[in-house]
Each structure stands twice: as structure tokens, then as C-alpha cells.
Nucleic acid binder design. Sequence first.
DNA 1: TCATATACTTAGATGTTCTATGCATAGGGG
DNA 2: CCCCTATGCATAGAACATCTAAGTATATGA
Lengths: 123, 123
Amino acid sequence: MVDRLQRATGKMPKNVPELLKGTLDLLILKTLESEPLHGYAIARSIEAATEQALQIEEGSLYPALYRMTNRGLLRFVWGLSAGNRRIKSYRLTAKGRKRLELETANWGHFAQAVARVLGEHPA
Amino acid sequence: MVDRLQRATGKMPKNVPELLKGTLDLLILKTLESEPLHGYAIARSIEAATEQALQIEEGSLYPALYRMTNRGLLRFVWGLSAGNRRIKSYRLTAKGRKRLELETANWGHFAQAVARVLGEHPA
DNA sequence: TCATATACTTAGATGTTCTATGCATAGGGG
DNA sequence: CCCCTATGCATAGAACATCTAAGTATATGA
């Protein structure tokens, strides 16, 4: 699916699998908005926030963290967890913060569009 | 992204790219709920319903219609459009109708979960 | 000591979507 | 009468995120 979020936002590249792809990224960005966390903690945080409705697979999570780091959305430092283990503590970069805003807006538009098709009152 | 919709529904296979994949499928199923339509018309209908917010690419649409037909969710008959062209008129099968119900529920759960992470009041 | 939870890594497969083309025709404007 | 555009469908190939599955390592509690 795709480019479903068209240029409604004007700035959408031209291709928005960003929606699919974008959702995990969005959840990660949002989770890191208020405080730095390591991968494992991010997954648990999202699962807790959704009361286990969303399950974050490690095989999806870690690659996503690499991608986002490579794209300059995140930065990490090695550290120690409460349990005394080596962790990569991730935080948002300025770029990541802007991306969070953009993707949050995109999600809103997309969800609203789907809602319209589904016949829910258009808000 | 993925299996984001976990087994919240209990019946989710185990893998729910159904979400990404599922969204286009869901939109198509919903569009065909009330009346049979041909591919081109489905795309236009969705675009109209979302005021062009969602763009349905033909390269995504037709393969999706094949997939769904092969899976027994849709059935089609050749016909003629108002413009007098050859069209494949698609309609939902009983299985497609059930799938529509399921995916509509899944979407609701997923959207709500994302909303929770985004900090919108949990409803 | 062993099982489990924590924590991260990565290779390979799967699947949807996109880009780009191609074909074909109806109808309107010039 | 010709051409251009909108209508309709089809499909190959690429791109990409995600999943499955496996591996490494260690802290902690039973």
C-alpha cells in the first residue's frame, strides 16, 4: 500500500510506504520523545502502552534502530542498564524530533482517511 | 511493520503485515461492500472518499485484486462500463465479507493502539 | 547448576507496494 | 479526420520493511 498519504501533506516524498514502514518508526520516535531508552526497553514500553496489543519483534526493532540511526534520526551511547547489562541508549536527534512531528501528522491524516472510507463520521 | 496487531484478536495468524498489506485490502473490501465495482472505479471511489488524501496506484491495485481473488475474497465477471469499455466487475464473496469484518476490527484495534502510544486519550 | 529474562546481532525469506511500461479504445477538440 | 486525454487492465522488476530463526552473552533466582 502506499503513497496512500499522497501529497496531502505536500512534503511527502512521493512514496509513502512510510506508512507501513513509518508506523514502527513513528512508535519508536514517540517512545524516545521524553527520554532516552535502549532497544529492549523501547519494545517493552510500546507493548505496555498498548497493553500488549502491539508486539515488537526484535528482528524488526533492531534493524529499525540501525536504519534510523543511519538516517540521523537517532543517536546512541553505550551504557549500563539497571540490571547491569551493556545497553545502547538511544535518543532523538533534532532531525528525529522533526521527523516525529511530520510522521505524527501523517499518521493522523492517514488514519482519518481510512476512517472516512470505513464510514466513520469524518470528524 | 508488523504483527503489530498481535494476537490481541486472538486469531491473527502470527504475522500481521496484514496491517500494511491489510490496509489496502481493507479499503478495497470496504469499497466493494455495498456494490460491485471494477478496479479503476474502486481506486476513484477511495480517492474520492478521502478527498484525494489517499492515492491508489494501479501497480498496487491490480495485483491486490488478483491476490484477493485468488484467496477467494473477491469474484469478478467481465462487463461493460458506462463508458462502454470492457471491465472486470468485482464483488465480495462470503469469505470476503467476513474478512472485511475481521480487518475492520483489526484496524480499529491497531489505530487505537497507535493512538495510545501517541498519547491521545485512550478513548 | 540451570532456567529464565535481559540485551543485542544478523542472515535469509517473505510479501506488499512502487516505478515504469505496455496495450487498447472511447470521445472531444481542432 | 487526427490527436490527445481519460478510461481500463496487465505485468515485470526493484525497493523495502518486516519476520523467522538462530546465535552470543550475562545477571539473577531457584
